[in-house]
Amino acid sequence: MLQWLKKRWIYLVAAILLIIIPFDWFLGKYNTLLIFIGLNTMVTVGLCLLMGYTGQVSLGQAAYYGIGAYFSAILSKTYGVDPWIAMLIAAIITGTFAYSIGYLIFRLKGNYLAMATLGIGIIVWILFRQLSQFTGGPDGMSGIPYLSIGGFVFDTPFKRYYLVWFFTLAILLISQNIIRSRTGRALRAIHGSEDAAESIGINVAQFKVKIFVLSAVFASLAGSLFVHHLRFVSPQQFNFLASVKLVVMAVIGGLASIWGAIFGAATTNILSDELLLNFGELDIIVYGLILMLVMIFMPQGLFVKLKETITIWRARTAKKD
């Protein structure tokens, strides 16, 4: 037991923290921010699987976040579908959409792939604005119902914090399991060398599409939770800047680091909520700058860099003792 504790204490501390964080006497006043960090983490993890592990760029990930959000909103509000069922249908639709897109665009590589994903992201965003009889156009939709289980309604940020972080942790764990598996090795092999991957029998095209669909489904689930949290949805939440911000989160967290996604999402959200408000439309320049600096000076990501620095520092202090 003691042995176990010694090795796993960090998980125990993390679990206790996660449980007590949303209380008023702790960080309760930041619950809305914490919920967004959770939602963005879900999308970012998908991006890490796609970009960091498989080496495939997506500059339009906000589109899948948005498709999940809009289908949940429209189904549950306009058509009165149960929000959980709406969430499931939204995920299936997003997945199917991503499958057909992926099938077409993963013939492309590098900059061409980046351009294609970017283009699709913009087209989807335009559709959100133009299909106004369904989506409410540029003004968006409001009055979307809360999620509930039996009679228990997720009607306060405190309750929704647990809901969102339940999903976030589930997605983090699932992703970690995948990375350590046969599939994870196949993905990393594709990143390493597509020719070598094919030579050992990996169906490169199929795995690229598979992981793209998974990342889109993660984004869709986050989008559904998003609309049942805010009860409001509008196109500008899923525009090009939103896609760029997601990439920034993934890069700061370290593209090939599943748990770094939380760190990336947290830093970026705090930055945009607390510091960049005064920048108005210029914030995209700041994100671009961050992206460049991190890529140049710590391509493995800020989170991984910090982790390494701490390890080195601990080894040094241990030596002194």
Binding site: N177, A186, K210
Partner: peptide
């Protein structure tokens, strides 16, 4: 890779 079968779902869970 080709001498094993289990897929993404079995891995995830």
């Amino acid at each position: 890779h080709i001498r094993s079968r289990y897929g993404i779902l079995e891995a995830a869970l």
